[in-house]
Design a protein around this nucleic acid. Sequence first.
DNA 1: TCTTATTGATTGATATCCAATCCTGTGTTT
DNA 2: AAACACAGGATTGGATATCAATCAATAAGA
Lengths: 255, 255
Amino acid sequence: MSRSQAIADILTRAILDHRLVPGCKLGERELSEIFDVSRIVIRQSLIRLADDGLAQIERNRGAFVARPSMQDAMEIYDALTLVEQGVAAQLSDRLGPAGWAELRQHVERQRQAVASGNDALADVLGQEFHTVFVRLSRNKVMQEIHAQLVRRTTLLRSLITADFDYCNLLDDHARVVELLEKGRLKPAMELIDAHHRSVVRGYIMDRQVFPELTPREALEPYLDGKAGEAPKPAPRKKTGDRGGTGAHAHVHTAK
Amino acid sequence: MSRSQAIADILTRAILDHRLVPGCKLGERELSEIFDVSRIVIRQSLIRLADDGLAQIERNRGAFVARPSMQDAMEIYDALTLVEQGVAAQLSDRLGPAGWAELRQHVERQRQAVASGNDALADVLGQEFHTVFVRLSRNKVMQEIHAQLVRRTTLLRSLITADFDYCNLLDDHARVVELLEKGRLKPAMELIDAHHRSVVRGYIMDRQVFPELTPREALEPYLDGKAGEAPKPAPRKKTGDRGGTGAHAHVHTAK
DNA sequence: TCTTATTGATTGATATCCAATCCTGTGTTT
DNA sequence: AAACACAGGATTGGATATCAATCAATAAGA
């Protein structure tokens, strides 16, 4: 793989881990020193990030981690809902027994993780559910679109006031699978919609985000060869946020 | 705008106009001489094209215009159908009178173009319909996803045996609008699906595509400043293809 | 004729340099 | 003291030249 792609992947992970927060300057010189490559390679990486919606390049000003607006957030969640509803409709028509089994098995694995108190694993599995869901459509184009939207929702999570609990929404997943398998498409789609709406409605993005890490500090754990085993989640000072990047951050709006 | 973005746009147009056909080598040196820029700028342009799915970069081999497979074609049309159906569902809920008026007006303009024999205009309007349709969702993220899918379908049209008539499917457009406005969402969605399915089913992509133009010839009309007024459609030797890039190439499968 | 080796071309990447632009800090003016 | 103007520094966007690695196609040899 090209060096610029590899670096783009690292930057992407750092952003998704909330180690590089929205608005953070991604200076060419600084990054080139961090990764020990030339500025041009960094430029190419930044172009890739910008094409993916994770960075924003301003002419003669440089690249910054994207700072999506509330409007952007709603549009991203709308698009994600649209895609997942569409996939749900396709699956309810076309999915074979093996597919349903895989979905049920995934939910079951997550259930066991929750039961055994392994929150981190449950979180990861909760994220993965959506990916598996879309993968079963056997449409790589759709998978890539969906993955990009998920990345952007993860970026959004850097911007919200992190005063929420993670519930992995095992119930929602199980119910979606159940409804779809029974052919009850419409309730399933409404459940998907309701889920995403409840998430985005809890967003409060007025606050400015201040980077707690310099790019050098943020990227240090990803450097130095295949050290990717311990991905190092995001550090947070304030709340009890465990730093997960779960796609299921569920905001408790009701009291 | 950055030079690499401008060049990427030109390359994109040339590909969508079928002047650069799938498989065509996009050599860095050649392009850098054509556009009179350094190789680095070209590399950045090619990265953008690859991210958009219009080019494919092979390590140490270079970039080529993407050569999507039949599988890719089906997946792209599936994704397009999914997106447009989802947008249709949203519009049937949320679109106001002004929106419906705009859609009806667009269809009417296309009807007039057809009636007056202005096929070229009718073709453009037929393409635009889908774009307008998605724009009314007021979701820029969705718009960009849709636009990318449309670009890829246009690329696909370089690969099919061009033995079909262009009918602008005014009827389909009018009917979709009519059905949606009446709240008959399901038939409208089925109509969208049927349309795209009929298109992709007519595809025959066994044939190899041979470039009839060198990159230098293909790109010449786009160079030299704002000469973009006469976009120069694609040249075709064989059929009566008028060179349109209409999103509504409708294959007459039934006899 | 088939296999192997060499050569040429192209890509990936680096270093250095330059122009244009933006930010900032200072100094001047009112 | 406040507002404005200007100059300098820093950063980006880009050009050029160069080098290593890899691929492809040809040429040499069995």
